[in-house]
Every structure is written in structure tokens, then in C-alpha cells.
Amino acid sequence: MSVDIIFKIAAIGILVSVLNHVLNRAGREEISMMVTLAGIVVVLLMVIDMISNLFNNIKSIFQLY
């Protein structure tokens, strides 16, 4: 389990917020919403993997079957 993933998520978040600002200034609100949604889904996919890993570990340690 590496700490890199925190910085990865932070980078994605900063990128998404900058793109959001730029697109809002250019008057493309609908595309900026799509960018936000895409960023959220990408990070969610990364986080869900870790959550399932953690839950599986806890399940096997505490004999929850």
C-alpha cells in the first residue's frame, strides 16, 4: 500500500479544478461539468479498489464470512 495514491488524487483534483475555472471563463459550463464528473469517476474507481482490498483483509482477519 503506497502513499503515492494520495498525491495522485491531489493532482487529479487540482487539474480538474483548474480545467473547471478555464472552461467556466470560456463559457462552456456543460463541458466543465463533464470534466468534473470524469475526474470524480476516475478517482472513485481508484478508491473503490482500495476499499474492497481493506474490507477483504478485515474479513479474513476477523473471520467474517
Binding site: 500500500m1 495514491i5 494520495i6 488524487i9 478517482v43 472513485l44 478508491v47 482500495m50 476499499i51 481493506l54
Partner: peptide, 10 residues
């Protein structure tokens, strides 16, 4: 929020 979830998991 994702940052806090990830930190908790790590």
C-alpha cells in the same frame, strides 16, 4: 473527501 478516505485506508 476521496483524500480523507484514501488516507484512512492507507
Amino acid at each position: 473527501m476521496y483524500i480523507s478516505i484514501t488516507t484512512g485506508i492507507i
